Simulated assay, not measured.
Amino acid sequence: MAHIDYYLGTVSPWCYLAGDRLEQLAQKHGATITYKPVDLMQLFSRTGGVAPADRHPSRLALRGQELQRWSDHLDMKMNLKPAHFPVNMAPSSYAIIAAQEAGGDVGALVQGFLRAVWAEERDISDDAVIAEVMTAAGFDPAIAENGLFVGAETYGRNLEQAVEAGAFGAPFYVVRETDQRFWGQDRLDFLDRHLASL
């Protein structure tokens, strides 16, 4: 059985556009997933990248066009200039870490946070929003409050593991058994083919 480490950022538009396709692939191929939220700004700086706010205008212009193309292609509602972006990713990341420890549909929770940013104009650093998203995904919000220390510790460890695994952006998928790496939601078809070959 293949295992996928999924390095993600809870404010990444590209993670949002991935939707539930990773989960569908895992189900199709009998693979398992470990969700590893990371601080994307630190990941960029650690691996030679640049935060979106510091990128050249030509890069930002193309990014906007590509996001629009992909949201149209995937028929996913998307506000290219969300009301709450950028925003502190740590609280929502801690919630995901706590949910994964508790067990349940972590993919639905991840997608809930991403949808909140990019389609619902909600602030995922707000405790009330976090609680609502967790409840909607079937989790008790209290687990996030009770798991703050572990969440912070795991969040930092995820960053180190991402760098060690060769990740430098999100979404970034690593198949543990083969060390095959896939960067971007537009590489999910290649991940599908790889899993089929195992």
Rank of each mutant, 00 (worst) to 15 (best):
F113N: 13
M76N: 06
A116D: 12
Q100E: 15
D105A: 05
I124N: 08
Y155R: 07
G147E: 01
A90D: 00
V87H: 03
V150L: 15
R115I: 03
F139C: 12
N88H: 00
L74V: 12
A136G: 00
Y94P: 15
D105N: 04
T135D: 03
A95N: 05
Q100G: 15
A116N: 08
A144P: 04
I97G: 08
G138Q: 10
V133P: 07
T135R: 11
V106K: 05
I97P: 13
Y155H: 09
A98T: 01
A128E: 10
A131K: 03
S92F: 04
P91T: 04
I143C: 06
L74T: 06
L74A: 14
F113S: 02
F149K: 07
V133Y: 10
P86S: 11
V110A: 05
K77W: 01
E145I: 02
T154W: 02
S93M: 04
D75K: 13
N79Q: 07
M76L: 13
G156K: 06
M76H: 10
A131Y: 05
D140T: 07
A137M: 14
E101P: 12
A119V: 08
I143R: 01
E101A: 07
V117D: 13
A144Y: 07
L148C: 11
A102G: 07
I130R: 02
T135C: 05
R115E: 09
I97V: 14
E120F: 09
A119S: 05
R115L: 11
P141M: 04
A99V: 08
A144K: 15
